[in-house]
């Protein structure tokens, strides 16, 4: 385990006052906010600065950390010495905001102590946990079983906490939507003093699909058609997430026309619709015959696409 220099993480001096630490934190939190940041390592940086703030803005934790930090530098191999925190009393309440699973081993080892000192005689339900899960659109159509890897705090005999990987097999319900949460009862943090465990909430997101785009329960796809299929009409076989369909292209269609397949979007009490957006693709004029056909059309079909809509049909 490496020693983490929280002052370096936030870019503040060792004697920085709490308002300065908060200011430095906010500047970085704005930069790495998961909803807007385009930085590739935004989630990791956010975790690091959250952790640094949690320690440096709590006077007791900061004092204990400072005493320890006199002997270590960032990146140095580190094991917390026994009784390193003797004489410091961390307030138990501040842990309620903190999901130890989202923090580093370093933090969990130092501040994750959940011994009898802070919770003697208390029976308390464990905290709820939150995580994101990415599923394929197919999973939302048919339901699926997926494995989620969580970092779960584990307490040793001395009451110190470290993170271990825990795999959960989760049944993804059919008809789940982007952004929706699913709750897994009892899969949150363990209870304290015999209390019930908390719940795990998974926020569902779809992995980007090369063929389909989703809005609510409606699903959109581009359907490439030949000019004669659009102009004359056609009946073609098309794959959809719920199986192949025989689709009728109405004659006189133009690029951009939306064809709706009612009820073939995401399933649910009110299933969504599937929309095919037509894209007319021109055959290349790379043979003599193809060129002659284009020339014949140019000659025999009076058509100027830059004129009236009527001329467009």
């Amino acid at each position: 385990m490496e020693f983490k220099d929280y002052y370096q993480t936030l870019g503040v001096d060792r004697d920085a006052a709490i308002p300065d630490i908060k200011k430095a934190y906010r500047k970085l939190a704005r930069k790495y906010h998961p909803d807007i940041s385009k930085e590739p390592d935004a989630a990791l940086r956010m975790q690091e600065i959250n952790e640094a703030k949690a320690v440096l803005t709590d006077p007791e934790k900061r004092a204990a950390y400072d005493q320890l930090g006199e002997r270590y530098r960032a990146g140095q191999d580190f094991r917390p010495p026994p009784d390193w925190d003797a004489g410091f009393e961390f307030s138990g309440s501040s842990f309620e905001d903190i999901d130890l699973g989202e923090f580093s081993d370093f933090f969990a080892n130092l501040f994750g102590q959940r011994g009898p000192r802070t919770h003697r005689g208390h029976r308390m339900q464990g905290g709820d946990r939150h995580a994101k899960i990415y599923v394929d659109l197919e999973d939302a159509y048919h339901g699926a079983v997926r494995t989620v890897t969580l970092h779960v705090p584990q307490t040793d005999a001395q009451g110190h906490v470290s993170a271990r990987e825990h795999n959960l097999k989760v049944r993804i319900p059919k008809g789940i939507k982007e952004g929706q949460h699913i709750r897994l009862a009892g899969q949150g943090h363990p209870g304290i003093g015999g209390g019930e465990p908390g719940n795990l909430y998974l926020e569902v997101h779809f992995t980007p699909d090369p063929d389909y785009r989703v809005e609510g329960r409606d699903v959109f796809a581009t359907l490439r058609v030949a000019p004669w299929e659009a102009a004359l009409g056609a009946a073609i076989d098309v794959p959809t997430p719920s199986g192949q369909v025989h689709l009728k292209i109405p004659k006189g269609s133009q690029g951009g026309r939306k064809l709706r397949l009612k009820g073939r979007g995401l399933p649910g009490d009110e299933p969504g619709d599937l929309y095919f957006v037509l894209e007319v693709v021109l055959p290349p004029a790379h043979t003599d015959k193809a060129r002659r056909l284009y020339e014949s059309m140019a000659r025999d079909m009076p058509f100027n696409p830059r004129q009236t809509r009527q001329a467009n049909g």
Partner: peptide
């Protein structure tokens, strides 16, 4: 992966 022991999720 056996699916029978997967955890049932409740959709909010």
């Amino acid at each position: 992966m056996a699916e029978y022991n997967a955890i049932e999720a409740e959709v909010l």
